[in-house]
Computed example of a mutant assay.
Amino acid sequence: MVASGWEWLRGKKPLVDAFFALPILLIAVPSVLGGSYGITAQRYVLLTVLLTGPLVLRRTYPRTVLAVVALVSFVQCLAGVPPVQANIAVLMGIYTVAAGPSFRWGLSAALVGVVGAGLATWRYPTEPDGRKGTFIMLTVLAAGVYVLGLHMRTRRAYLRSVEERAERLERERDNEVKVAMAAERARIARELHDVVAHNVSVIVVQADGASYAIDTDVNRARQALDTISSTGRMALAEMRRLLGVLREDDDAGTYAPQPGVAEIDDLVEQVRASGLAVAYEVHGTPAAMSEGRQLTVFRIVQEALTNTLKHGGPRVRVSVRLRYAGDALEIRVEDDGRGAAAFDDGRGHGLAGMRERVTVYGGDVRAAPRPGGGFEVVARIPVREEVAA
């Protein structure tokens, strides 16, 4: 509420300026009542109003207000009217112009103060030895007001720069949040593609097998249906886990760990159960890898096997080889299916997802038809961060 009230006052400049001009009028009251002003009461009141009245628009029209009060003071000086308390309005006008955005106009206001000090010293002489001191005192007073306005101008400019910087940082933070959200959505989209494409491919293959075997081999049909059921449950569980991160205000539960290299055995067995002949080999000593790298390895193998199921054709055979060679892991998935002759609808994201995953860890991947037929996916992933660097 205090902040809103201050914002309201900042939009009412004349009202605030009138409040700050009010003390000048209050100071002038004792002189009017005591008759110690040296001129008639009417002229004193008129002069006070002419000097303080423009101050209501001091910040709205600063240069015009300074010109008006300086002109009134100049006429007062020529007419020989003694100085009054309201002549402080000249100093207030100098301060307002000096605190404005223009340095040249502020310097001009300071010169107006110096000229006014000279005129006052000339028009209202004191003792000969005191004129110099009076001029110096008035000049120092005008210069001090100018310096105060200049300091306020600098401070306001600094505060504006701080506010602009804070707003810019806030916009940058919002943009970073949006970019992070977009990257997270892209990651979840890749995860969902891997999960859905693989499991649905297995379900389709098993459903086709069950439909052919239901009349001739009931046991095989039943086994295929069991595989469809377990695969569907697994796909549903993974989809719930991945989509769970998109729920707001969901504090309950922990998510299952992401699959890694150890789960490739289960993946191969699942694909074998769908009727695809898979050979799985591991060469070298397995190296310790981060969970993100292990997930990347698993998804590459999963996507490659899914592509073989979808595009390899009947009686296709596929081999999966992991070779740990020093600081890198080589993944090679080869099949003897249709290869370049396979149909592509152009709407797949699996290969692009593999490239993105491998690039994150400084590796490379190649996916292309084999010269002698079939398709191969070869990826190389550094097992440590310093190797990628």
Score class of each variant (00 low, 15 high):
E7L: 09
G11F: 00
K13Y: 01
V16Y: 06
F20I: 13
P23L: 08
I24A: 10
L26D: 04
P30N: 03
V32Q: 07
Q42R: 01
T48E: 08
V49E: 02
Y61L: 14
T64W: 11
V69Y: 09
L71V: 15
V75R: 01
Q76Y: 04
G80D: 10
V81I: 12
V81F: 15
P82V: 01
V84Y: 10
Q85H: 15
N87I: 04
N87S: 10
M92H: 10
G93A: 06
I94D: 05
Y95E: 06
T96G: 05
V97W: 02
P101G: 03
S108E: 09
L111Y: 01
G113E: 03
V114H: 01
A117N: 01
A117K: 02
A117I: 04
G118V: 12
P125M: 08
K132H: 09
T134R: 07
F135P: 00
M137C: 01
L138A: 06
V140L: 13
L150V: 12
A157T: 06
Y158L: 11
Y158P: 02
E164S: 06
R165E: 13
R171N: 04
K178D: 14
A183F: 12
E184V: 10
R187D: 13
I188E: 10
A189Y: 11
Q206W: 05
Q206V: 05
A207Y: 09
S211E: 14
A213V: 12
D215Y: 06
Q223I: 10
R241A: 15
L242A: 15
D250G: 04
A252N: 07
T254C: 03
A262H: 03
E263M: 13
V271W: 00
A273G: 07
S274G: 15
G275H: 01
Y280S: 03
G284Y: 11
S290D: 09
L295T: 05
T296A: 15
I300H: 12
V301A: 07
T306L: 01
H311I: 00
G313I: 04
V316E: 08
R317G: 13
S319C: 06
R323A: 15
A325P: 04
I331S: 00
E334D: 15
D335M: 00
F343T: 06
F343R: 10
R347D: 12
G348M: 04
A352Q: 07
R366V: 15
R366C: 11
P369Q: 09
P369W: 08
R370F: 03
G372R: 14
G374L: 15
E376N: 04
V377I: 14
V377S: 08
V387Y: 13
